[in-house]
Design a protein around this nucleic acid. Sequence first.
DNA 1: TAACATAGTTAGCGATGCTTACATTCGCGT
DNA 2: ACGCGAATGTAAGCATCGCTAACTATGTTA
Lengths: 209, 209
Amino acid sequence: MAENKTQKKAGYHHGDLRGQLVSAARRLIEEHGPDGFTMSDACKLAGVSTAAPYRHFSSKEDLLTEVAKDGLIRLRQDSEARAQPLPRGTVEAIAAIGRGYVDFAIREPHIFRLMFSTKSHAGRIEELRSVGRQSYGVLLNEVALYLGESEINDLVNRTSFPLWTHVHGLSFLVIDGKLDVNNFPVDIDEAILFATKSLLPPKPRLEKA
Amino acid sequence: MAENKTQKKAGYHHGDLRGQLVSAARRLIEEHGPDGFTMSDACKLAGVSTAAPYRHFSSKEDLLTEVAKDGLIRLRQDSEARAQPLPRGTVEAIAAIGRGYVDFAIREPHIFRLMFSTKSHAGRIEELRSVGRQSYGVLLNEVALYLGESEINDLVNRTSFPLWTHVHGLSFLVIDGKLDVNNFPVDIDEAILFATKSLLPPKPRLEKA
DNA sequence: TAACATAGTTAGCGATGCTTACATTCGCGT
DNA sequence: ACGCGAATGTAAGCATCGCTAACTATGTTA
């Protein structure tokens, strides 16, 4: 059982209860789904009483939003890590970002749904949107490189969007069990690569050196 | 306010309580989300006591599954109706099916999510899957026509899948508000048509007359 | 070291909402 | 006409949880 970061586990004062609650919630949500998740479970896992969280979060929703935000940030880090080792601005790098997206969904399906859900986030949707845009930005940058564009312009946006749409849909189909091995022996890598190639325009000669 | 089909509204015996509960649930879920939906609300809407549903459904989940099933059937009818007036086996017909898919999601986002969710359906997932396959079949048939294939073979499957994936993802992005007009002035028709064209292979000369 | 802010505890309120045991009423076949 | 079974009503059980009020313990600062 891997102990968590910033574990002080001292006595009364916890050290980083806020952070621990987020990661406790993360684990529990993955295990029982966002509905099966209860505050007291999170408290039990963090080793505090049921009232303690309310020093750090105004409500259960507030905590859930934090978990979602955390997920979006990790998704971005994932995506970056995937693209980095590959030759930049290539189909492969773009496909790798997509693969990272789907893998995240597979690894943490409940969190993934939570991240893109609008409900359970009260008045903080705009905040989430902003973090989400940063994750999307990883793809935008890579596509810009592919297209040889020096900034995120309209062409980059229009090119990236169907790619996002595709992996987003693929993610949901996978985690919702629509791709059972019998009827859909889908090779995810192949699916992503095919769609990426099909949806990208031919790589232009570099004119703006 | 359109009265529902099979409305008898007689006295004690209801006529078609089962059907009415499904459509009541449908309306309520669309209004308050699947979580905000309660049995007693459905009962109130159908004009019966809270115990009455249990003569027709074994549980709340059971009713929800029925609503989902109903949705999948209606989705299929929708898709068929969209493709029918258009020249068969064309890009346009295929795109129209996709558009129907997204429109359904927009029209009934909560039901749409419920239809593809795995939870809330207890032991009836296989049943739902089967109904879902029928909806997907509409696309498969159209793609088969496009490809000039006389049956649903592997090529048809492989060609159809990314199309489904794309509109599925698009649907979720739309209903989850990721395409706000400011940052994503996405023309849905255009998006679908572009993806459909990109993901379909060139139309083959018809050899099997 | 006194005083104050911060973090956590204990106890419990209050509301919700599914489900069931049992009574009741109606439609239909005989 | 009548009786049986299906359909609905009544009433309540009961478990779950989110959240709060009031209290206690620790850390920090002057």
